[in-house]
Design a protein around this nucleic acid. Structure first.
Lengths: 190, 190
DNA sequence: ACGATTTTATCAAAATTTTATCGAATCTTT
DNA sequence: AAAGATTCGATAAAATTTTGATAAAATCGT
């Protein structure tokens, strides 16, 4: 009894295959599963640069592929996309310290406590968290969080940063949104 | 001016292409974008069942594909998955001994320990490191780090050099920023 | 080698720039 | 219209940059 046998006889929600499997080639397993008529979603893992493997896998019945290395979030996003179970499976989650942002559920918590953010605040925080540890200039933030170009003589960003900080720094926790004078803002644990 | 032109000349976060575009084939557009060296993530839209189009698109440089019909949630998940990984070309990193300056992330470390520098300090160090091993006169430094020309009767540069040295010579390491009397400054390991 | 002269190092205060803050005004969504 | 969100404008606060004065070091001519 091996993985291929299990896959052909059991009903899984999703099957993840690696190209290099002990004994068999992942693509062959993929083909075997399809041969018995199973319609289960299959995600194929490939090493970066091996495009022909991706193509091969897709031709033999894989539904999606993922290039290694990949984050767990990314894999989960693919699984979610394939299984389309909106309420049971978690969405894309960003974490910085005990601050957690769920991009799909559109929620933010800190240490388990729910935090309500307005739309702009949410988008701003999401962008900061998505690039945590790197300094983001006002220009870059303006470009990504506000679609059009904002005039540099406004302090809209500062204003939102202020509100974000107030909402996020519940209790008397350390500041997470750091200003780097002359360069921009950065979110980080320390 | 069409979409293909815009894609080749503008920096987008992500590009979504449909197989059937007015005038051109989406795959061709994809190829055109890659031809000019853009590394932007491209998501390709295909009609269900047309697997060969998927394969074709992946071969020509698309990063992901999506089968129509699809939910907006699904598209958003794909976009997030692609944009979260830094697709940018690796930032310019300067090294002199164990001193490391990342121009893109705007960070400086010495022996792995983070060092905070103000903007002028950072720019000054970057200029020195970019020309490590060569003596830079005050005039040249003034010209490159300070946009206009500063009056030669000020000791602004000395002042910043002093602060830089203090911050950089953590522990009791050897001095890196050397003065060459009458000629200027130079950074080097020895 | 020695004093005179020029150049560089150092420090703290002053000037400037940048950011934080808050309330009011404007815009959006019910 | 009402409630909430976003932006704007003015001012306070914080951080950076420049300045000025003096000490220390290096260079030069003798």
């Amino acid at each position: 009894i091996d993985g291929s046998y299990m896959a052909r006889t059991t009903d899984y929600d999703v099957i993840i295959l690696d190209h290099s499997l002990p004994g068999k080639n992942g693509v062959v397993v993929c083909e075997e599963i399809r041969a018995v008529g199973k319609a289960v979603p299959i995600i194929f893992l490939t090493v970066i640069g091996e495009l022909h493997h991706k193509v091969d896998a897709l031709e033999r019945g894989a539904d999606d592929y993922l290039t290694k290395p990949f984050s767990f979030e990314e894999l989960r996003a693919r699984v979610r996309a394939l299984t389309r179970r909106p309420h049971k499976i978690e969405g894309i989650i960003l974490r910085v310290g005990d601050l957690v942002l769920d991009a799909e559920k559109q929620t933010v918590t800190r240490g388990g406590i729910g935090i309500y953010l307005t739309r702009k605040e949410f988008n701003l925080l999401e962008y900061l968290m998505r690039n945590h540890g790197v300094v983001l200039s006002r220009g870059v933030i303006m470009e990504h969080v506000w679609n059009a170009e904002g005039d540099p003589f406004s302090n809209t960003i500062e204003s939102h940063i202020l509100n974000l900080r107030k909402k996020i720094n519940i209790g008397r926790r350390k500041e997470m949104i750091h200003n780097v004078p002359g360069r921009g803002y950065m979110i980080d644990v320390a």
